[in-house]
């Protein structure tokens, strides 16, 4: 859905995005985080504590996801992708570790 419109905001820059104008916010969409979710979150905390990445590296690598994944993956799946991307980029792990 790449548009040539130069004013089109980045995918993650969602404020006011008319695409969601008619999507109700669902206050009842309130399931507690799953074990997967909590584990991803905890791994992120450990790595941040150890100074291996900053919140902005994490945010940037989520923003870099393709639109399909940005809107298709669950929240903590996106975190996992981002954490993994930063760890590979920094040489903490290699792509062979995760292939």
């Amino acid at each position: 859905m790449d548009s040539p419109d130069p004013d089109r905001p980045a995918t993650h820059d969602l404020g006011g995005n008319p695409r969601f104008r008619c999507t109700p916010v669902e206050p009842d969409d309130d399931a507690p985080p799953s074990d997967f979710d909590k584990r991803v979150d905890a791994v992120r905390s450990v790595l941040r504590e150890k100074g291996l990445f900053t919140v902005d590296e994490m945010r940037f690598n989520i923003e870099a996801l393709h639109e399909t994944e940005y809107f298709g993956l669950t929240y903590y799946e996106k975190w996992l992708r981002s954490v993994t991307a930063v760890m590979v980029r920094k040489g903490v792990i290699t792509w062979e570790d995760i292939k």
Binding site: P6, P9, A10, G15, R59, F60, E63
Partner: peptide, 16 residues
């Protein structure tokens, strides 16, 4: 402006 259209950037200023 939308400098992030030119190169990958991480900007915390919302477009709006």
């Amino acid at each position: 402006g939308r400098p992030e259209r030119i190169a990958p950037m991480h900007l915390r200023t919302p477009h709006y």
